[in-house]
């Protein structure tokens, strides 16, 4: 093995006893206290078809995108907020926290380091949730296809609903992709969260294959 004697982890996740300012002592188990590691469940759509259609229409018409720029393609989100393309007239808004957003906008190449954060953010989003991947890099690696540190296919790690090709795609193409996503949701085909829960083991195995410092529970909503 290499001579590199890396410190084990940047944050200590071992069990330990902590003394509070009042003098009490109590045990802290960060893996359980800081995260919840319950496995994801499949949440089937409502049984009443017209109701589900209405819900899906609402979901499609009010898209909250997670403002997490994961790559160079994220720069194409900014014109969409501005007066030139103005996505808010189509019901597209940006939220700064994964808890409140429903669409994950993967902007371009995802390095392994970013992928770890992508997986965590994705799992923290509340279902039903969708992934919107732009740029060639998320599809087949794009110009980074032979990079030692950039993933090639995003759909092996999280379920992707819509791909937009281009390097980078124009904002018009992204608006068109949002239209496609809306159509998918309205037709009831946007069940990425359930797909993730169903094939959880497979996705996890793929993620763990490349993320070397797995210092979190398997699922940390």
């Amino acid at each position: 093995m290499a001579k590199m004697n890396y410190r084990k982890r940047l944050i200590d996740f071992d069990k330990r006893t902590v003394e509070s300012p009042d003098g009490e002592t109590f045990e802290v188990n960060p893996m359980q206290d800081y995260y919840c590691d319950a496995k994801p469940k499949v949440h089937p759509p409502s049984k009443i078809a017209p109701l589900e259609t209405f819900y899906n229409w609402c979901r499609a018409e009010s898209i909250f995108i997670l403002g997490f720029g994961t790559g160079c393609g994220a720069i194409e989100m900014r014109p969409l907020m501005g007066p030139m393309y103005d996505a808010s007239r189509f019901g597209v808004f940006w939220r700064p926290t994964p808890r409140q957003s429903t669409v994950f906008f993967i902007g371009g190449y995802a390095s392994v380091k970013t992928l770890k954060r992508i997986v965590r953010s994705y799992e923290q989003m509340q279902g039903p949730k969708w992934v919107f991947a732009v740029c060639s890099c998320t599809i087949n690696g794009g110009m980074y296809f032979d990079s030692y540190n950039t993933i090639n296919r995003l759909d092996h790690y999280i379920p992707v609903d819509v791909y937009v090709t281009g390097c980078m795609p124009r904002p018009e193409a992204i608006l068109d992709g949002i239209d496609t996503l809306k159509k998918r949701i309205k037709e009831g085909r946007g069940e990425g969260a359930n797909k993730y829960a169903k094939n959880f083991e497979w996705y996890k195995a793929n993620q763990k294959k490349i993320i070397k410092d797995w210092d979190m529970p398997d699922y940390n909503w």
């Binding site: 093995m1 290499a2 890396y6 392994v112 380091k113 770890k116 599809i139 087949n140 690696g141 296809f145 032979d146 990079s147 030692y148 540190n149 950039t150 993933i151 090639n152 296919r153 092996h156 793929n206 294959k209 490349i210 993320i211 070397k212 410092d213």
Partner: peptide, 26 residues
Amino acid sequence: EYWDQLPPYRRDFDTKKYSEETYFPR
């Protein structure tokens, strides 16, 4: 983060082969 192989900027590291083995090429 916690790379455990040949350092990737060394020229004897075959980045294409590594990518093909690791990242599910389409």
